[in-house]
Design a protein around this nucleic acid. Structure first.
Lengths: 272, 272
DNA sequence: TCTTTTGTTTCGCTGAATGGTAGTAGACTG
DNA sequence: CAGTCTACTACCATTCAGCGAAACAAAAGA
């Protein structure tokens, strides 16, 4: 792990590593497990667990196993509720979702994953349980593709070359080259189509949200079942989605040409 | 801030303080503001912001202001999805919520606040927007009161004496003594009533969830408008809520007498 | 029971973390 | 545009916070 040594507070890094050792699958850990996962020696791990306990972020049950406490949620909550995006967009999205009787989501990019900020639910059955904070691979979701298409060419290229392109279904695009072409289509069209790439019964449309500088800061999506996608539903939904994305972008300060995607560019890698 | 000095890793504490300096209201901070809020000198604050940036938890915009990144959500998400409670209870609650066409919530206690873990939404209008991670004062919510009533007597007393009992509406109970009496009623009845104590048009019923040892680990609630609460709706809702709480407790391993609240106890403080 | 694994405590060493100072870049003002 | 803030960055000597080995204690298995 090469990291600029200058100005890096080791103890903070290690302590956060301890917090991150917990996950949905590994929700209770023994001291020795924490030490193993983080690569710390046991004594050090103990110092950090002690500290985190005193701060109330983890707690130890009677079997001497550590768990995260609800306090860790408060960190994420500060982010969610402080985000201008959510404040401005959530209401607009809720209303649109109600009107269409469709579940919609708003997401941002974090590393190679899309993270959901807000979900407007409806009664419809197609229940694909996501909630604020959920993460999904970006290359196989409507929101993810709408977001990736908004990156600068070189950043996009670099990311494609380095990210893991998991084959989620047989429809998932898994090579940098094919995805690049898809993104260029998205830039032209202004919206993303994700047809069974995430789930064999799911057809999702994703549209970007731009901030005052025309940078892609978020994406919204609307899902249809594959059945519905055969009719003229997509067209209608797309219009609504498009209008909504425009409206949210406007409230974020973008009043320039729409969409504000960069112009399509040729594949910058070696042809093979 | 008195804190056991032994085995407390200062740098971790300070670094986390920097993260916690951000909130919904203060979502973007300058270096000097961070230093001021955390009580660190500027140089130290810089070391921590540097570290947190390198770790991807915060980022700095072009106006040199710091923001949290979506990465902080992942910490809370590990907690949410690792919680047995949520895994077991969410589905049961969703189904119940659908059947009754009522929004329900599940919450746990964290310090003096209730933190919502899961929300089962319905179309109903009474929209009081909460989402996983939201925090509310515990003394004025149905879930909060159901949770507090489950504390050990001395813990409950101590908490009541030390927590801030904000007067949210004119109905909110704000003295330790009156709340104590209310909690004893809750222990007898097995459920909490929160009538306009949080919001003048809200009537909420809260029921506890017990774990395998009979400890109160969570609470669920169902809300009615004050209008509806006048009829025989509460009775019906209560039955459903009660059954659900029992069912969730059972799946958590509690098969003893119900409810598993401690027995009512007299007010331990000085009479005045 | 004994053995193995896991967790706790101690302690001397060292460099990570500290905070003062001085220098620099932006922002605001008149 | 000079002048004056204030906010931020870079540097560096000092030192104590954090470190890990090792000895000890306590659970968990067998």
């Amino acid at each position: 792990m090469t990291r600029k040594q200058l100005h890096f507070v080791q103890s903070l890094g290690r302590g956060l590593a301890v917090l991150q050792a917990f996950s949905a699958e590994r929700s209770s850990l023994k001291l020795s497990e924490i030490a193993q996962i983080t690569g710390l020696n046991v004594t050090a791990a103990q110092r950090f667990t002690d500290t985190l306990m005193q701060l109330g972020f983890i707690h130890r049950d009677k079997h001497r196993e550590f768990h995260l406490t609800p306090k860790v949620l408060s960190l994420g909550f500060a982010f969610l509720n402080g985000s201008q995006l959510k404040r401005l967009g959530a209401d607009l999205m809720d209303r649109c979702s109600q009107r269409l009787n469709r579940t919609m989501n708003m997401a941002v990019l974090d590393g190679d994953a899309v993270v959901f900020l807000h979900r407007s639910e409806t009664q419809r059955f197609l229940k694909f349980d996501l909630q604020a904070g959920s993460r999904l691979p970006s290359h196989s979701t409507g929101t993810g593709k709408a977001l990736l298409a908004g990156l600068e060419d070189n950043e996009l290229f670099h990311k494609l070359e380095n990210m893991e392109l998991t084959q989620v279904t047989s429809y998932t695009l898994t090579t940098p080259r094919t995805l690049w072409d898809d993104f260029m289509e998205i830039r032209k069209r202004g919206y993303a189509i994700c047809d069974r790439e995430m789930n064999l019964s799911l057809y999702s449309l994703g549209a970007p949200v731009f901030n005052g500088e025309g940078k892609t800061v978020a994406a919204i999506n609307i899902s249809l079942s594959v059945e519905e996608a055969k009719g003229d539903q997509p067209k209608k939904m797309l219009e609504e989605l498009w209008d909504l994305s425009r409206e949210i972008s406007l409230s974020m300060g973008w009043d320039g040409p729409y969409p504000a995607y960069p112009p399509p560019a040729p594949w910058p890698g070696q042809e093979d």
